[in-house]
Amino acid sequence: MPHAILVDLTECVGCGACTTACQQVHQFPEVENPTMDAQNFTTLRAIETEDGEVYARQMCQHCQDPACASACLVGALEKTRDGAVTWAANKCIGCRYCMVACPFDIPKYEWASNNPKVRKCTMCYMERQLTTDLKVDAEGYVLDRSGERYDIDGHNVKAEDRDMIIELTTNADGKRASACSVACPMNSTMFGDRAALIGEAQRRIKDNPDTYVQKIYGLKEVGGTSVFYLSSVPFEDLGFYTNVGTENLPDHTWRVLEKIPDIVVTAGVALGAVYWITNRREEVRKFEQDVKNQRSQKKA
């Protein structure tokens, strides 16, 4: 069951609980009104509109066909069946093509580090899998089911932090969800089944045409994503990336890449043929020259 997040901006009061919960669950320093960087995976921008102040939330869109995952040469970024786009620290070589490729400019980098990580929202993917029954090793680190240290984006989890992470990613019904959705006091950020959330979003804009602009941001963008927004003001006015198109971006490169086998075979055969013909011509020329020389020698 793929998960998704629905953010209803009309419900948001800009309290910042989501940004704080995000910092807490990742054990980042807590800052108010953060900007997106390697230690802040979600932001809230207060924007003055005709309808009063609107808080434009931003986070990874978790695209259905992510440009970052397609760009990554070692496959460190991956669209999981859960719906989250995750990043594997042990594979990344630090080329930053994902940052170039992302249509929403989401992946951030640890520029000051000598062993830098690419950081972005993973919809609390690994945090949501963390449970109390996992074993702990002698040094106090939680182990995963295969016996390796439990790894969240290249960080190991200490046993003493486990309860905090579980608490931050468990909602009132006892279900596991992203920390930002659990923390939201207005239920503006909702975490759940992707199809169900799309249904909910469609119902809301249909039932309240006066409240909402008739658009679910994230439903069609770059071929579909797993994070949806509803708003009372046009998304252009909120600084959302509205010119990203509705086509899967990886298709642009795949159209070229898929031709490679044909190109290699065709060009290989053509070059081989040219080589053979010109080489043969050279051999024949030499042979004729030889014969000619021998004849003229005989005559002499």
Binding site: S70, A71, C95, Y97, T253
Partner: peptide
Amino acid sequence: GRPWSIWHALIYQNPHSVL
């Protein structure tokens, strides 16, 4: 960023990546 892991391209192959 992590030049010492450049050889990862050999083992973690992503054929969909131009890079």
